[in-house]
């Protein structure tokens, strides 16, 4: 299993029921106010202003607090104060369950420690990036999960060197036109494109692990689908890890490229030299240039 959320873990272990989880989630939703709601409570923003910022957010990929400051609706001190209030008053799922009497303190403590132990295998391991780039946490988590999923799902050891901005194709990674490239866009507080290119041999190895049977004679569409799904799993788990680290991102469905795409004008390529025990791959990202 990949990265779990605590509620799913508790249901799995028969500690709580689905109904109790839903109650606890509802209590959380009621108590954990959104940024705009806190701003209204503090009378820093009116309902109309919040609505305007929400509408603007649909056009711009910026978090509410940053957007409110950029539009001059709040000053930075007010935004900081609201974020601190939100953080200090946040009701966690465990606390919510405790308050509703669905778990006792002893059980919660015990389960949290087992949960942390189980999820420790997904703890973020060091990924080095030589240049300062926006969205670097997304890159670090994605590279780390690529490494972990290659090990767990495919059974191959992936070594990744430090990432850096690739000014010219081929200077950091090999930038070969490998057999297949799968791209997944992260959407939300950042816009980063994850690109995994694999050799045809490696694509078959991935498909064999995904299908749980020899994929050497499978048609190309099945192999492609398996590699797409593998990348989807990496980025899905990365998004889950990022949420645990406090950064909300979503992912778009995977896209397949037969030729390596070039970065649009407003993006730079960050490449990571990568080496597998078996098969060839390239790992790179398109990130905003500023």
């Amino acid at each position: 299993m990949g990265i779990q959320f605590f509620g799913e873990f508790l249901i799995d272990r028969w500690v709580i029921t689905r109904g109790q989880l839903i109650e606890a989630l509802e209590l959380q939703e009621y108590r954990n106010l959104k940024f705009g709601e806190v701003a209204m409570q503090k009378k820093y923003l009116s309902e109309e202003q919040v609505k305007r910022i929400n509408d603007e957010q649909k056009r711009q990929d910026i978090q509410f607090a940053d957007l409110a400051v950029a539009l001059g609706e709040l000053n930075e001190a007010q935004a900081r104060e609201i974020l601190t209030l939100q953080k200090n008053n946040h009701l966690f799922l465990g606390e919510s369950l405790l308050e509703l009497g669905h778990v006792t303190e002893d059980i919660l403590e015990r389960e949290l420690s087992i949960f942390k132990e189980e999820q420790a295998r997904y703890a973020l391991e060091k990924v080095e990036i030589l240049d300062e780039v926006p969205g670097s946490l997304v890159l670090e988590v994605s590279v780390d999960l690529t490494r972990k999923m290659f090990h767990r799902v495919v059974g191959l050891l992936l070594k990744v060197g430090p990432g850096q901005i690739e000014k010219e194709a081929g200077t950091v990674s090999e930038a070969r036109d490998l057999h297949l490239t799968v791209g997944i866009s992260y959407i939300g507080s950042t816009s980063v494109l994850y690109l995994l290119s694999v050799s045809s041999e490696l694509a078959v190895t991935i498909a064999t692990s995904m299908l749980r049977e020899d994929a050497s004679d499978e048609p190309e569409e099945v192999i492609e689908d398996a590699v797409r799904e593998f990348a989807n799993m990496v980025c899905g788990n990365a998004a889950a890890k990022l949420a645990q680290l406090g950064q909300e991102v979503d992912i778009a469905p995977p896209e397949t490229y037969t030729v390596l795409p070039s970065a649009p004008a407003d993006k730079v390529v960050v490449a990571f030299p990568a080496h597998l025990t078996e098969g060839e791959l390239d790992l790179r990202f398109f990130v905003p240039s500023s």
Binding site: G2, E8, I11, L21, M233, G236, E248
Partner: peptide
């Protein structure tokens, strides 16, 4: 595929998914 972020999974549980 977004296990840990939980948001869509939570929504599914509310809508009646069993697990």
């Amino acid at each position: 595929s977004l296990g840990g972020s939980g948001q869509k999974a939570e929504e599914a549980l509310r809508l009646g998914a069993m697990n």
